[in-house]
Amino acid sequence: MPAAPIAFDELPAAVRTAIEVETGPIRRIENINTGLNSSLSARAHTTGGTVFLKGLRTDHRWVWTQQREADINPYVTPLAPRLLFHVIAHGWNILGFETIEGHHADYAPGSPDLPKVTDALRELASLPCPDIELRHAEQRLADYVPHPADADAFQGDALLHTDWNNHNVLITDDRAHLVDWGWATRGAAWLDPAHWIIWLIAAGHTPVDAEKSVALLPAWTLAPPRALDAFAHASANLWEEIAGSAPDDWTMNLLDAARLWQQHRNDRS
């Protein structure tokens, strides 16, 4: 379930004070309601500029993602916005990032954003995977494949983002930036293009065209067809679990996309 949203002014006064120790005096707050993985999501306009804030209570089951983002940030900038500070105080865990002025990526067919996203995928694939604590793709997906051994195909030493929600991709004049690294993972290099395919299909691409969109990425060319089949199967099962018994329209769209890609892979086989 998404983290319950909270406005900046609803934070305990002591937490707001701890944030202002890092930011300087805050003149204005823009609360943002598009995030799924954070309770607090806001832009703080300060005397020195704008800072993006994201936070969770320290007792939230996903609070570990805050530390994951802090740990990984030095290794993924400038692809990601730079982390300015990390505050843990009075029951809250808060990250402060430099603000990227851009728009959320448009994944629709023909979008001018698509080449920039492809370049970001290529850049990410060139980064070494840091020696920090990361989840492993084969572990994350083991429960969603028909046989546990099928998940062995997802093993690898590449750094993966894995959450290609278009709200996690900010487009500026010259490039795409990736935000929300809490679910960063170690695994096979072709997995990030494969994750993106489902979002492309959800945005209106056919499975064939979605695969063409990643076909020239070096990481994608390394993907064994049977491993792709296993991932498509796992993704459909994962989105079924996320959807549950009463999915909203957004989740149902992703589930339909995952099922459509799975069927396409089955038909190819």
Rank of each mutant, 00 (worst) to 15 (best):
residue 163 D to N: 09
residue 228 L to Y: 04
residue 197 I to K: 06
residue 208 V to S: 05
residue 239 W to P: 09
residue 245 S to Q: 14
residue 167 H to D: 14
residue 225 P to R: 03
residue 182 G to C: 02
residue 187 G to L: 00
residue 143 D to P: 05
residue 180 D to M: 08
residue 164 W to A: 04
residue 189 A to R: 06
residue 141 L to Y: 14
residue 222 L to T: 15
residue 172 T to W: 02
residue 227 A to N: 05
residue 200 L to F: 06
residue 222 L to Y: 10
residue 142 A to R: 15
residue 186 R to V: 02
residue 147 H to W: 14
residue 163 D to S: 08
residue 213 S to P: 02
residue 217 L to I: 09
residue 184 A to N: 11
residue 173 D to R: 12
residue 195 H to R: 13
residue 230 A to S: 14
residue 201 I to H: 03
residue 211 E to R: 13
residue 220 W to C: 01
residue 239 W to F: 06
residue 179 V to L: 09
residue 232 A to C: 07
residue 138 E to L: 04
residue 197 I to G: 00
residue 214 V to I: 15
residue 166 N to M: 04
residue 180 D to W: 10
residue 175 R to Y: 07
residue 227 A to F: 02
residue 195 H to E: 12
residue 235 S to H: 08
residue 215 A to N: 06
residue 192 D to H: 06
residue 144 Y to W: 11
residue 194 A to L: 08
residue 202 A to D: 04
residue 172 T to D: 06
residue 170 L to D: 09
residue 230 A to T: 12
residue 227 A to V: 03
residue 195 H to G: 01
residue 138 E to S: 13
residue 168 N to I: 14
residue 201 I to K: 00
residue 197 I to V: 15
residue 180 D to H: 12
residue 214 V to A: 06
residue 222 L to R: 08
residue 136 H to D: 11
residue 217 L to F: 04
residue 140 R to P: 04
residue 204 G to S: 01
residue 173 D to F: 07
residue 182 G to S: 05
residue 224 P to Q: 12
residue 157 D to C: 04
residue 183 W to E: 10
residue 231 F to C: 02
residue 205 H to P: 08
residue 137 A to K: 01
residue 142 A to V: 15
residue 187 G to R: 00
residue 179 V to H: 07
residue 183 W to M: 08
residue 221 T to P: 01
residue 237 N to F: 05
residue 167 H to L: 13
residue 139 Q to I: 10
